[in-house]
Simulated assay, not measured.
Amino acid sequence: MDIGSVSRTYDGRVALRFQCGFPYSPDEVWTVLTDPERLRYWFPACVVELAPGTPLEFGSSDDQDGRPGVPAGHATTGSVLVVRRGHVLEYLWDSEILHWEITPDGSGGCWLTLTHTTDDEDDALAHGAGWHAGFEVIEAQLEGRPIDWSPRDRVAELAEHYRRPSA
């Protein structure tokens, strides 16, 4: 997978964007983004109700080795902003926005795009390794492969690729 890209939004915020093509239907990819049993391996929130305004708590505990990008014991809040089943899922995470979009590719597969919008480039880059590792878990789940590695360890391996180059 290519490393995510960073750009500025119209209002000066920073958008970290990942896009990956999958040879699976949009419905199959949607399930990986919304099924609590699958989310527990890679995402720091369990979404129980997919409805705008639903409150969320993002965090992980010491016994959850998955959920890359969030330190064990750390918790923050947010809410569901947009739900268009099979197409768009958007959350507010503190002041950050996570926008997931699934686009059919015309051959039965689809593109999954995540845009993580935050206020600071260093913050965006700090999330890069976690999202990269999360996409690797998504790929394994879609392929039916077991998650027999530590997503948290994978984040540590990838972290160097998401650091701002020294001047």
Rank of each mutant, 00 (worst) to 15 (best):
P26F: 04
V32Q: 04
A156P: 09
L81F: 02
L158I: 10
V14F: 06
E160A: 02
L56W: 10
V83E: 00
L56N: 00
G128C: 13
S166E: 15
G78S: 14
G69C: 08
A129G: 10
D11C: 13
G128N: 11
T115D: 09
G12R: 10
F43R: 01
G4I: 08
I3D: 13
Q19P: 06
V80M: 05
D94N: 08
R84E: 14
E160K: 05
Y91N: 01
P71N: 13
W93H: 05
F58V: 06
H161Q: 13
P165I: 13
W42I: 00
H87Q: 15
D105I: 07
Q19Y: 03
P55W: 03
L39D: 02
G86H: 12
S95L: 04
E96H: 05
Q64I: 08
G109F: 02
A124L: 06
T31Q: 03
F135C: 06
H132N: 01
I147H: 07
G108S: 05
G108K: 07
G59T: 06
I3A: 15
R164S: 14
F22L: 13
T9P: 10
H99Y: 09
P146Y: 00
A133P: 05
A159R: 03
S25D: 09
Y10W: 12
Q141K: 13
P71V: 07
D148C: 14
G66Q: 05
D105W: 07
P104F: 13
L112Q: 02
V70L: 08
G66Y: 04
A156T: 07
D148I: 13
D63I: 04
R67P: 03
H87V: 14
V47G: 05
S60T: 15
D123E: 15
E160M: 01
L39P: 10
S95H: 11
G106I: 12
P55R: 05
D27W: 12
A126P: 00
I102A: 01
F18R: 01
R17V: 12
G128V: 02
I97G: 07
D148T: 14
P146M: 08
E157W: 01
W30M: 07
V82A: 03
G130Q: 13
G109A: 11
P151C: 11
E90C: 05
E157G: 06
W131P: 01
F58Y: 08
I102F: 07
G109L: 02
R145V: 08
A159P: 00
R152P: 03
W100K: 05
V80N: 09
G12W: 04
